[in-house]
Design a protein around this nucleic acid. Structure first.
Length: 488
RNA sequence: GGCCCCUUCAUCUAGCGGUUAGGAUUCCAGGUUUUCAUCCUGGCCACAGGGGUUCGAGUCCCCUAGGGGUCACCA
């Protein structure tokens, strides 16, 4: 035994080491990097979901980074709102959330490094001069670009100008973005790049610089983001190269468009993810809806989170933009509501809508019936209220249709029959009463159903009357019939 | 305008040289239901246009058209 143990130990260690390096090599780290200028919107959530799924599928990590460097536009409140949305959807960061506003020292250090290595330089051109240059170039129909006048400047800098810092970008050739969705895209340096600013005159670093630095330092291997960033990518590659960082894989996912075919914006109704919670959508419905926008797996429409994780691959993402259309979301939401437990629905109704059902002894009957017919949780609340509260008014059209000549007589009969019954507990018990009256009078079910429906609910349509009566009980049923008999 | 990306039913999409171009949502019809909804069955509806390549093209190439994105000391 001892001998075997001694031989096995190094062998195990070897296996372990191999497994470790194998895992390291294929370790996938993705990120979602919102700027907290408002709420989390649908498009952002989708790229976040894609990133999350890809990391999970590979046993890697998904990290959140808050890009809050623009102090004027960012707010702590907005950051919190975004985090709340993630919590609601059950997506979480695998590591501590990174706030760019707290990483100033890091950016300064790398800017200094580029300065020291002569890969970046101070530029003393004023904003006014820059604007003038731009206008001049545009007048000549040239592409506006910095002319590189301070690139190799060694004279005395002009007085009173706080310089910006520019990076020395390549002046010729091409930069190729290897995109996992769109394929390889070549950008010609001459019509894409100039020595762009990496630090403003107040010393603060700019977006394309910090993104590259952060992604590199956070060990991001796969950048999945909206394709509106595609033309930023060459710039970021310049930064990666200058700093000697390894360039990650990029996946630029097409935008989500509105019905007009334009980029989705606040004006397009509900783009705030948390609005969907307020409207009564289930997180899994929203996630399922979004994962199928631009991505598919054969003919499958319904995906649990586990299935998404195991089936998702960013290379299966479509190359074209998709139009945002909520019809399918309603269908999915209805599906997930139907398949949710009553306990969960009850809890959500209370938490999200303040609608408390816990004390109602027939809540199971009610929820069973309403789950079948609701598109949203809000629907359930509305329908439940229509049942629980006596009708405040009777729909005239329904009255006209339902209250034909003998309606009152039939209702009276039904009421009296019902009054004599004991131990009515289930819908079937009430159904039997209706059946009895129908048999006795030799009439169709509609003859009694229609006027009864109007009496109980004030309108036509709605759940089965046996269910309604079970929920409100015998006394209330009789009371509502009496009221209808009096008023109609 | 320069650069880049995109283009299959109304919408989301399958398709990876040979299919009656499939599924889903919506819509319509029928069935189920006392009613409405659900559910079931069926139906309508698409390869942007034009050239090539090929025995054969939604699939490959080119052009045109249309749409979108991006061009800051914003992110």
């Amino acid at each position: 035994m001892l001998n075997r143990g001694r031989i096995l130990l190094p062998f195990n260690l070897l296996l372990f080491t191999i497994a470790y390096f194998k895992q390291r090599k294929s370790m996938v780290v993705t990120r979602f990097a919102p700027s907290p200028t408002g709420y989390l919107h649908i498009g952002g959530l989708r790229t976040a979901l894609f990133s999350y799924l890809w990391a999970r599928k590979n046993g890697g990590k998904f990290v959140l980074r808050i890009e809050d460097t623009d102090k004027a536009r960012n707010s702590e409140e907005a950051a919190q709102k975004i985090l709340q949305a993630f919590t609601w959807l059950g997506l979480s960061s695998d590591e501590e959330i990174v706030y760019q506003s707290q990483r100033d020292d890091i950016y300064r250090k790398y800017i200094q490094q580029l300065l020291d290595e002569n890969k970046a330089y101070y530029c003393y051109m004023t904003k006014e001069e820059l604007d003038a240059l731009r206008e001049e170039q545009q007048a000549k129909k040239e592409r506006p670009r910095y002319d590189g006048r301070y690139r190799d400047f060694s004279g005395t800098p002009p007085k009173g100008v706080e310089p910006v810092i520019r990076i020395k970008a390549p002046t010729s050739g091409t930069i190729t973005v290897h995109d996992g969705i769109k394929g390889s895209i070549e950008f010609k340096v001459e019509d894409m790049l100039d020595d762009f600013i990496i630090a403003r005159s107040d010393g603060s670093p700019t977006y394309n610089f910090v993104v590259a630095v952060d992604d590199a330092l956070m060990g991001i291997t796969d950048v999945i983001r909206g394709d509106d960033h595609l033309s930023n990518t060459p710039k970021q590659i310049v930064v990666y190269n200058a700093l000697g960082f390894e360039v990650p894989k990029f996946y630029h996912v097409p935008m989500i468009h509105n019905a007009q075919g334009k980029k989705l914006s606040k004006r397009d109704g509900a783009t705030d993810v948390m609005e969907y919670k307020k409207m009564g959508y289930l997180p899994e419905a929203l996630l399922n809806f979004l994962v199928r926008l631009g991505w598919s797996h054969g003919d499958q429409e319904i995906f649990s989170l586990e299935e998404m994780v195991s089936l998702f691959d960013p290379s299966d993402i479509n190359r074209s933009a998709s139009i945002y259309n909520v019809e399918k979301l309603d269908w999915l939401n209805a599906h997930y509501i139907k398949n949710s437990s009553n306990e969960r629905i009850e809890r959500l109704l209370e938490e999200d809508f303040g609608f408390i059902l816990s004390s109602h002894d027939k809540k199971e009957v009610l929820l069973d019936a309403l789950k079948e017919r609701a598109k949203t949780l809000k629907d359930i609340v509305d329908m439940a209220q229509e049942i629980l509260n006596p009708p405040s008014q009777y729909d005239p059209k329904a009255v006209k249709k339902a209250f034909k000549a003998d309606a009152k007589e039939i209702l009276e009969d039904f009421k009296n029959t019902l009054a004599q019954k004991e131990s009515l507990h289930l819908p079937v018990d009430y159904h039997d009463v209706m059946e009895e009256v129908v048999q006795k009078r030799q009439i169709g079910f509609g003859k009694i159903g229609q006027p009864l429906r109007v009496s109980l609910l004030g309108k036509l349509g709605g759940p089965g009357l046996d269910v309604v009566m079970t929920v409100i009980g015998k006394e209330e049923t009789i009371a509502r019939i009496d009221k209808a008999l009096r008023e109609l």
